[in-house]
């Protein structure tokens, strides 16, 4: 643990408690990012309230995944401010510190640890000290085993718990990754295209799960499947060319002329 803490001063991230007195857990302000002249994010502003479920929609290249990269520390913006609560500056932390601070991410393409079992995948993702010496002498407590069992139950993979994760179906991998997110007990969940490649029934269950998570966690969902967005969304942000074009409920968004022009219009046409 000590070795883990050495070096960077801001690594006491297990103890980071975001200041959410204003009800906002994630501030993204005036963020700009360009790749070789292409403006991926253009003065983007986004505020996520504590406990809300927000959907991000937008055409390909609108900046949705780039925004997630910026929030989780994978990519640094050229300018702007990203903070967790009011005080924790996420631009000062690296990916692992941001993860430990309580921002979890599910990738577009499901990435699980294929050689490890489903059980071990969840075990590694459990909230707790992620330092070397703890890992070396770690023994699962009864409480942690209960927690893993509970998560396995939630994601419906109890029977598969000792399968190598690589043997799961695509949909099951998506679920496992959601389970890994839950194990980390994050305050904010970033979920990139959770229902891609899922059957109708699986999609329904995912919608149920994500809605049930909101409240206790803040959930940001990026999704192309409009029916899915309609089924879960309370508030939707539309991204277009790296900036937020509109925000509101699904029906507000659908009647917004700008949105119809650039996004829904295309889809209907």
């Amino acid at each position: 643990m000590n070795t883990d803490k050495a070096g960077t001063p801001l690594t006491a991230s297990e103890n980071i408690v975001p200041d959410t007195r204003h009800g906002v857990i994630l501030y993204v302000e005036d963020v700009n990012l360009s790749f070789d002249g292409f403006k991926a994010l253009n003065n983007l502003n986004l505020y996520i309230n504590d406990g809300e479920l927000r959907c991000l929609i937008g055409a390909n290249g609108a900046g949705k995944t780039t925004l997630m990269d910026v929030i989780t520390g994978k990519t640094r913006p050229d300018s702007g401010k990203v903070s967790f609560g009011q005080q924790v500056d996420l631009l000062q932390l690296d990916e692992s510190e941001i993860a430990r601070a309580g921002i979890g991410r599910k990738f577009q393409k499901p990435t699980v640890f294929e050689e490890l079992t489903v059980f071990e995948n969840i075990e590694l993702s459990l909230k707790g000290d992620k330092g070397i010496w703890t890992a070396l002498f770690h023994k699962l407590s009864g409480e942690q085993k209960d927690r893993i069992a509970e998560i396995l139950h939630t994601i419906g993979l109890v029977a598969e718990c000792h399968y190598p994760a690589g043997r799961l179906s695509h949909g099951q991998k998506q679920w496992l990754e959601i389970g890994m997110l839950l194990a980390a007990e994050p305050r904010v969940l970033l979920v990139d295209e959770p229902v891609a490649g899922m059957t109708g029934q699986e999609t329904e269950r995912t919608a149920e799960l994500l809605t049930s998570l909101a409240g206790k966690h803040s959930v940001i969902v990026v999704e192309h499947d409009m029916a899915f967005v309609r089924s879960i969304a309370r508030k939707v942000s539309v991204l277009h060319q790296g900036t937020v074009l509109a925000e509101g409920t699904m029906s507000e968004i659908q009647s917004n002329p700008d949105v119809i022009k650039v996004y829904l219009g295309e889809e209907q046409g």
Partner: peptide, 17 residues
């Protein structure tokens, strides 16, 4: 082993590979 198979995922789980 997880680092071997998916290093960046390990990072997003909160470890420092």
């Amino acid at each position: 082993t997880a680092i071997r198979d998916a290093e960046s995922r390990v990072r997003f789980v909160g470890y420092k590979p």
